[in-house]
Design a protein around this nucleic acid. Sequence first.
DNA 1: AATATAACCGAACAGGTTGTTCAGTATATA
DNA 2: TATATACTGAACAACCTGTTCGGTTATATT
Lengths: 190, 190
Amino acid sequence: MDRRQRKTREAIFAAFIDLLSEKNFAQITVGEIIERADIGRATFYSHFETKDFLLKELCEELFCHIFDEMTEEKNNHNHIFTCDAPDSVFLHLLEHLKRNDNNVLKLLSSRNNELFLQYFKQNLRKLVESRLAMFESERSAKLPESFWVNHIVSTFAETVRWWIDNDMSESPETIAEYFFLAVLFETIIL
Amino acid sequence: MDRRQRKTREAIFAAFIDLLSEKNFAQITVGEIIERADIGRATFYSHFETKDFLLKELCEELFCHIFDEMTEEKNNHNHIFTCDAPDSVFLHLLEHLKRNDNNVLKLLSSRNNELFLQYFKQNLRKLVESRLAMFESERSAKLPESFWVNHIVSTFAETVRWWIDNDMSESPETIAEYFFLAVLFETIIL
DNA sequence: AATATAACCGAACAGGTTGTTCAGTATATA
DNA sequence: TATATACTGAACAACCTGTTCGGTTATATT
């Protein structure tokens, strides 16, 4: 890829992320982005069809990156994912996010637009669906798969969001423990 | 309140809901609203500061209505909420939503804007917080309250959303059962 | 180094949206 | 009937969007 293209693209992303830390997606205008990225208006539109596509591509670059790395690790250390209990997948994800803490995860915060969480869930869903084959016979008769997947994905995602909202100050292990306890208490009160 | 005001307000709400069933909140313009409501532009702005305030007031009218009714019922049939297990609160909420199915709950669907879900959660949180005093001693030492409340609210809200996405075809009892099973399986896989 | 290619600039543009203003008209209330 | 209040309709500036185009600059190729 042309160095100019790459630099422009990065400048746009940087300006966009910068603005996202200050205001909502809806409140950000293309004018602000190109001013901060210091590029021409036409240039922006030659890179991204609209503001929405910019967001979409940013999320893809962000989350696909994270989840792809996880898939890679799975292939390298197969035992972690296939033999251990599924909660280690969650713990693994948390550690991954902690490692990749590039000030961009803040976008998942509840203070920001819901769109990030949606994209995040989208990717998480893929991961979960591919790993929930076990216990299928027990589950399938009583519980629709889509409900089950939605439940898992939502609880995971909301936990991650809570963590980020609290500045990721707890360790991944602590969060995993919180999650376990919350589910446990849930069974008690039901 | 002046009959004119009331009628205008209702016309705006009706047009707005109508449009929301067709497109996203972001895509709806004030121009479309006033055309469909058949009122003047200035009139709209004398009622609502912006489009966002319109959404806010609609949600308040909608959800406060639902949750206030629940609080009333609680006062009338005190036993349901204070003696029974907390899951009956959830079941109660589901039955309530089913009864109040005025084609407006569709707004909670994932196809629509996330803002509704946010407002819904906001109200749900109040309800949950006021009912989660039990088991406090066991919980508080190990699990932060905000995590616990967030977990409960999110799982409830996402369950309701799944239900609505599936056209509310299952009975409230079935959904409550799904919820119970999902949490149960969750403890198994952890 | 010379040339062709592709990206960028920047200024301008039409079309659409927002939120405000104001003089005039209709409706409620006393 | 008289007064207050809500609505009308049209116009308005300010802003945002997405496109166009001739000219400029960087990159890749030879």
